Simulated scan of single mutants.
Amino acid sequence: MLTEKRIEIGFLLFDGFPMACLTSLIEPLRAANEIAGQGAFCWSLITERGQKVRSSAEVRFEAERSLSECQPIDILFLLSSPTSGFADPGYGNGVLRSLARHGTILGGISGGVFPLVRSGVMTGHPVSVHWCYEAAFEAEFPEMDARCEVIVTDATRYTAAGAAAAFDLALHLIEDRLGGDVAHEVACWFQHPMMRGKGVRQQVPSTSSPDTGDRLPPLVARCVDLFASHISEPISIADVAQQTGVTPRQIERAFKQATGRSPSHYYRAMRMKAARQMVVYTKDPLADIALAIGYGSVAPLVTHYRSAFGLSPSEDRRRTNRFRVEGNTPLPSI
């Protein structure tokens, strides 16, 4: 159990942060205070210099204090897009490291894990990474223990993938501080059907046709798992067949029936989705992106990318830049 004192939470906001993640954390805490009849939680909005920021929905928020005014604070969550960063990285990252040394729990929600990891405070800590950012995160932080669970926490670090996961994380904070009955009532207030915990994997959209549903047949699902683990070093359908104990022809038939695609086209679509994450959410050169998804040169990447998305990677990156908000932050944020 956390101590009985009021828990002070700071939300460090960067331009382009996902507004839903902020409200998904604050609203259950507010409701818990009302239900319990006490101010168990308090919170404040923080920016690097105390400046105003804009969410990914272009809604402006006014900070209550600057990063230099964060001490003492119990928990600090970073909310941002993947490309967000401090105007003065040396100072901002130094403050986060100082807060960590003095006992502040640090966390990141959705894209907020990117500046959190860049600060150096996540060494040795696992991280929840939203599936939409998985390839970009792996490209920038190959040494990190990135996980697909909706919530990943340890004693001093809290990370969550997206707004619904942030709500779940808030419910866990409420349960720890005020008990399960209050957490359950808060969930009922918002018609939140269940409180997900550690170990629950994210729901990820498949590349199958809309009428196939979310559940793939066991053979196809096993093949997809093998494809997903071989994005940078492609695996042949023959090798997949050998590892699953069937023939390539059986895999072809299973994919056609379940997805309407051949396994090779399904696999290519997965690799193109990974490529697009890196195109949109990193500044990596196209040659590096091509290598990251298993191509020896840029030419086949451009060909397959255009076939998948209707424009080249460079055109897609330029188009995304036109919709970026101040501070070079991409939209949308999750």
Rank of each mutant, 00 (worst) to 15 (best):
L2Q: 03
L12S: 08
F14W: 02
G16P: 02
T23N: 02
L25A: 13
A32P: 01
A36S: 10
A36N: 06
G37T: 13
G39A: 12
A40T: 03
L45C: 05
E62I: 13
L67F: 13
E69G: 03
Q71F: 12
I75F: 15
F77C: 03
P82T: 13
G94E: 12
G103T: 03
G103I: 09
M122Q: 08
S128D: 01
H130G: 08
W131T: 03
Y133A: 05
Y133V: 08
P142S: 05
A146V: 09
I151L: 15
A155L: 06
A160P: 00
A163P: 00
A170G: 05
D176S: 10
L178A: 09
W189Q: 10
F190E: 02
H192Q: 04
M195Y: 04
R196D: 09
S208W: 00
L216G: 05
C223N: 07
V224Q: 13
A228W: 06
S229W: 06
I231Q: 01
S232N: 08
A241E: 01
Q242F: 01
I251T: 00
R253F: 14
F255C: 02
Q257A: 15
S262K: 02
Y267V: 12
M270S: 01
M270K: 03
R271H: 06
K273Y: 04
A275S: 11
T282S: 08
D284P: 02
D284W: 10
P285D: 09
V298H: 08
A299K: 06
V302F: 05
S312K: 05
P313A: 15
E315H: 09
R318V: 11
F323E: 05
F323S: 10
R324M: 15
L331F: 14
S333Q: 02
